[in-house]
């Protein structure tokens, strides 16, 4: 078969199914891998990601836990130090706060504090983000907050390729990796190469090339950035869309390269503006590409409120493609 023919072979798949295939593949490839978390087994996963895996791999490797986030996340750390390759699932980012002690004080710290003796090859997956009317205790985007912590890596798969491919790479990493899956993405559907597999996790990716402005997004905001870019293109503005993919370590080089091409940047982030990953990206642009800028860096972030329940308020609180379009138009307009 020709290379073109192979590349053309794709399957129609959802983000959820891509994640499931990634977990399944990991369980098949490495006997040290197991999945542990609340309702990952019999229930099939809070967001149905692990449905069917209990039947295939059994309760030893698809391990339902009590509602004890600190204990089972810490147990994942201990099991990783004991030679296993655990995948720990936390239902939502808000619940992960119950395990923050283990994530920060142990997972992120022990390697350095022990003088390099104990690394922790642990993967923690959790759902993040809003948009499903789940109100203020199930909807926040704290991945930027986690990205503050040295010693861990923060991945935010926004595409089917990354949903399918980041997990294996994360499992091969000798250190703790947190994967934030935006809850609004699980049902997104598209074409994925039939032989899709592991992807690198060190670089941001240009998802749409452009010359007038860099729209810098990740996870749940990538789709909004792409939609904004389409709308802007209709108005004659050529936006580049950069998918950060990994929030720690940040691929500063790709960010600066994009801004150097376009001379303008808008960062779209579902986190709260103050102290956000958008703030960090903005600071790095100032530090590294200040003289390339034709306009101040702009941010489109979530409103600084706990996420409200009613749809119209939730939509008002979240970054939207329309806001991005307005922001870019104002930015370009100012220059001219």
């Amino acid at each position: 078969m020709s290379a073109e023919g192979a590349a053309a072979q794709t399957v129609r798949i959802t983000y959820r199914e891509a994640m499931r295939q990634a977990i399944r593949e990991a369980l098949i490839r490495d006997p040290r891998v197991f999945l542990m978390g609340e309702d990952v087994g019999r229930y099939g996963g809070c967001f149905a990601v692990s449905r069917g895996l209990l039947e295939e791999f059994g309760p030893e490797r698809i391990r339902d836990t009590p509602l004890s986030e600190s204990a089972f996340v810490g147990a994942g750390i201990g099991a990783a130090m004991g030679g296993m390759r655990p995948i720990v699932e936390i239902m939502t980012v808000n619940f992960s706060l119950l395990a923050l002690d283990q994530i920060l004080n142990n997972a992120a710290t022990i390697l350095h504090m022990s003088g390099g003796q104990f690394n922790i090859p642990l993967v923690i997956r959790m759902t993040t983000g809003a948009g499903r009317q789940l109100a203020a205790q199930h909807s926040h985007s704290l991945e930027g907050w986690y990205a503050h912590i040295p010693g861990i890596k923060i991945l935010t798969p926004a595409t089917l390729e990354d949903a399918r491919g980041m997990l294996w790479t994360a499992l091969e990493d000798p250190d703790p990796v947190l994967i934030f899956e935006h809850g609004g993405l699980y049902n997104t559907e598209g074409e994925l190469a039939a032989d899709a597999g592991a992807v690198e996790i060190d670089h941001a990716a240009v998802r749409r090339a452009g010359s007038d402005v860099s729209l810098i997004a990740y996870g749940g905001t990538l789709g909004k950035a792409l939609r904004a870019a389409e709308e802007l293109a209709a108005g004659g503005i050529d936006a580049e869309v950069l998918d950060l993919r990994t929030l720690r370590p940040l691929d500063t080089e790709s960010i600066l390269a994009s801004v150097t091409r376009t001379h303008r940047a808008v960062i779209i982030d579902e986190g709260w503006r103050s102290g956000s990953i958008a703030a960090e990206v903005s600071a790095r642009i100032m530090e590294g590409a200040f003289y390339e800028l034709d306009a101040p860096v702009a941010r489109v972030c979530s409103a600084e409120v706990p996420m409200p329940y009613p749809r119209h308020l939730e939509e008002a609180a979240l970054p939207q493609a329309a806001t991005v379009v307005q922001t870019v138009r104002a930015m370009v307009g100012k220059r001219d």
Partner: peptide, 24 residues
């Protein structure tokens, strides 16, 4: 395995180390 200075924070690690032993 330490040397843990968060009171109670070492217990989950012990559970995990034991889990790894049992699974292996």
């Amino acid at each position: 395995y330490g040397g843990n200075a968060i009171v109670g924070g070492g217990l989950p690690l012990a559970v995990g180390l034991a889990l790894a032993d049992k699974m292996a």
